[in-house]
Design a protein around this nucleic acid. Structure first.
Lengths: 111, 111
DNA sequence: TATCCGATGTAGACATTGTCGACATCGGAA
DNA sequence: TTCCGATGTCGACAATGTCTACATCGGATA
């Protein structure tokens, strides 16, 4: 029952938020995910994941007044919590050990 | 419908198999996962994942006569396919870009 | 000022992935 | 013989990934 690990996409979302620093709004996250990971998903998908990560204490958000430029109205700014950062580091470490020494052998494999 | 990406645990399993080279039997994979990633799951969990990865063409296996030493009877030796290796590389690349420049800032975060 | 539109969010549904425990087998060891 | 450890298989269910449809708020604009 206790969700012990971050899913693949959950990790990506957390990382995208970290990359955006104080500009982590839902739509910007969507763009960051697409730019860096080539992962383009619907807004619904992102919001669901955001909601779950918040419920698990891996991120938090604050509501803000309308955006300065166009289309203005309230939106949420997301931020990774300490627990979220810790979970990311743990996962990164696990994968680092699993990849250890494999990089070379994989070059050229697959089409 | 088309499962485009590897799940978090699926990636770990594929990597463990790669690490074990020609010694990738179910039980050894279980041990490798535990040793390197600190991830200890039941045999059922592993077999289910192995089965799904095989169905998607990311790994294949060959049946072997009983193990040389103790408890002998047939078992399966697993191996990652070219497609599996390619999927791993893609995922690794996506995460590399997402982590870019974040390592420092994360040191010391979380408990 | 009535309406349209883009930026935001929410809700419900459903497929995929992660996880177990129970059950079944095969050969040696006791 | 019986017991036991190494192997696998199954069915059930929780967690994660994903979409589409629906709802809102304010400016822009006709």
């Amino acid at each position: 029952m206790a969700p012990r690990y971050l899913g693949e996409f959950e990790q990506m979302v957390l990382l995208a938020i970290l990359q955006l620093k104080d500009e982590a709004y839902a739509l910007s996250i969507l763009g960051e995910l697409d730019r860096r990971a080539g992962r383009s998903v619907s807004r619904g998908t992102l919001y669901k994941t955001l909601e779950r990560l918040e419920k698990k204490g891996f991120l938090e958000w604050t509501a803000e007044k309308g955006p300065p430029d166009r289309g203005g109205h309230p939106r949420r700014r997301f931020a990774v919590t300490g627990r979220g950062a810790a979970a990311l580091r743990d996962s990164r470490e696990a994968f680092r050990k699993l990849w250890e020494g494999l990089d070379e052998g994989l070059e050229g494999l697959g089409q």
